[in-house]
Amino acid sequence: MHWVNVAVMLVMITSGWGIYDDDVIVRGFHFSPFWRLGDWAAWSLNWHFAGMWFLVINGLFYLGYGFATGRFREKLLPIRPAEIVRTVVDTLHLKIAHEDITVYNAVQKLLYIIVILAGIAQVVTGIAIWKPVQFSGLVSLLGGFQTARVLHFAGMTVIVGFLIIHVTLALFVPKTLWAMLTGGPKLKPRTRVEGGHAT
């Protein structure tokens, strides 16, 4: 699911930049053609509206899996503020503790939660600007069509910001890349208490 998401996210982001360039939100800020998917806006749009299905279907599987198996709760919670501060300080000293790649640190947890929420928000704001009449209630909830459009753009910048940190740090700890390609280290059968009974 991760690598489908990588492909789909790249399609959605770069085709989105192609659509954006027709009528910029930040004055004077354009994406150069090199970064844009699609010869021009019509094809960027077609890429975007093709990619959306894969994004949503893959995303639903990912969320369904994460919630149903308890993976989200196990991996992403709890987050303690003190831990966040400590991890940030360590990272700034280039002390990246990632010996056990099956356990996320507090900053990782926070970033993963942010990017998952940003992904969901992109779908919601995307629906609002795709169908502003059919979902006019959603549009007014988001503060109007142009606001929804700016939120859709802002969601993109959050995801791109995450990607920059995510990819940089993954390159710092190359063994995570191998784990991501192979499915991660084999966990020893653990004695664990779950749902009230030991397995």
Partner: peptide, 27 residues
């Protein structure tokens, strides 16, 4: 690639027609 994208776009036309509510008025 373009013909594949156009095929999906035509499929999206059908989805859009399904989403279209003939009684829903724009604000």
């Amino acid at each position: 690639v373009k013909s594949a994208l156009l095929a999906i776009s035509r499929l999206n036309d059908d989805v859009q027609a399904l989403l279209f509510n003939p009684n829903k008025l724009a604000p």
